[in-house]
Design a protein around this nucleic acid. Structure first.
Lengths: 230, 230
DNA sequence: ACAAAAGTGTTGCAGATACACCCATGA
DNA sequence: TCATGGGTGTATCTGCAACACTTTTGT
């Protein structure tokens, strides 16, 4: 036997975060779920995902299955963790490589909401199929402990944004208010966003400067162009 | 088709770090390599690893294949990343879940060094089979950017250790010298190590206090008993 | 007594927080 | 002119790096 085992299936799942208003109008972290149609956990809600095909990369599989099930097309997926307990899927052995991404609100709107796709508040999202509850908790913990200005700006906001918008994003993610003055200085010191020279007019107040994110990103996985300490 | 694909193989590899003296006597980060006997990359050096069996968890597979190839048995494996480029193994599609661990010197000595197992300095370790060069670089980057007092103490040192020993470990990992006074304060402030009350006698100098690591560890992956911000 | 390493104190710098204050706009 | 949020200045606090200094052992 040159390759002693065959019967392990490789799947991908995706945890997609967006900032949407909940019933009370507060902006909170949400994620899309899909209803399962087949039997392990039939009819229950689960993370978007599917099988990895022979010739596609893991992240491509994540992108493809996400698009197929929800219509979402995030630009950048980050690998989160690989789950492989032998009993995590009844009947067959499945190893799931889980990816995570952030999407802008108008991209989130592209999701084909309906009978089988639904956005849920990430904090009270429970009772999912398989070990997906655990996966969501871990993804949320990672989001909150590793927020970076440029990263969040680039993926939750449009190309140009005001610092107030960026602050709003951080406040929604971290669930606490931040001092505008100190937030501004931190962002400026980080060097990861830069002024565009433009201003946002139209509000009933002084028009804010607009910024854009700088940095190619690739922060949290192999293939970094130039990692820290390198 | 209930499960559309079958032909992806799941493997594990392990990057094991130990602090060993190099030819010049300097303590440096080393890792064990095994010589491949079969053909993709036959005779070349590679990370220890093997196929995941049907009924074992991914980390158990890591433990087992590491023991089979090298004789090493680290207590705690941490998942590093999952590599799955379609072309990373010639001929067949292989997804490799990579784990990392730290071992004490006397544990490292348990490795069956010989014709087919060799410890190498991690920094000038190149020309490995598959994409293993890339994996080693990433593991090393993670080790150096995420050094934590308790974590390193627990896995590189014996149960009781002096702060000088702990400092020596950090200096070897980070490849620079550290101020003893500041190091002591940082460690004490971290609260992750605690005095045992004992002292180390026998050196030709003032006997240092001995410490031991506190904390259940489980720091960098799901299944944390109580993660930050929880 | 001396060497060597353990351990303590002190100072200066850098970044973060808190908060007072001024600025520009729409209504 | 006032309400609203944009934007600046500044005192204070906190943590860390640097380094001088004292203490305790073995020889």
């Amino acid at each position: 036997m040159s390759t002693s085992q065959q019967a392990i299936l490789v799947a991908v799942s995706t945890v997609i975060f967006a900032l949407l208003p909940d019933r009370r109008g507060d902006v909170r972290v949400h994620l899309p779920l899909v209803r399962r149609t087949r039997d392990p956990y039939g009819d229950q809600w689960a993370l978007p995902g599917g099988w990895v095909r022979q010739e596609e990369s893991l992240s491509d599989a994540g992108r493809r299955t996400l698009a197929e099930t929800t219509g979402l097309r995030p630009s950048y997926l980050e690998q989160l963790y690989t789950f492989g307990r032998p009993d995590r899927s009844p009947g067959q052995r499945v190893v799931s490589v889980v990816y995570s991404a952030l999407v802008r609100n108008h991209e989130a709107a592209a999701a084909v909401e309906g009978e089988n796709v639904r956005w849920t508040s990430a904090d009270d999202c429970t009772g999912l199929a398989f070990d997906h509850d655990e996966i969501v908790q871990y993804a949320l913990w990672r989001l909150r402990t590793k927020v970076q200005f440029a990263h969040v700006a680039q993926h939750f906001l449009d190309e140009r944004f005001s610092l107030a918008q960026l602050r709003g994003v951080h406040e929604a993610v971290l669930q606490r208010s931040l001092d505008p003055a100190n937030f501004r200085r931190q962002v400026e010191a980080s060097g990861t966003v830069v002024e565009t020279g433009e201003r946002q007019t139209g509000g009933r107040h002084r028009p804010p400067k607009l910024y854009r994110a700088v940095v190619p990103d690739g922060s949290a996985g192999p293939l970094r162009t130039a990692g820290p300490l390198a």
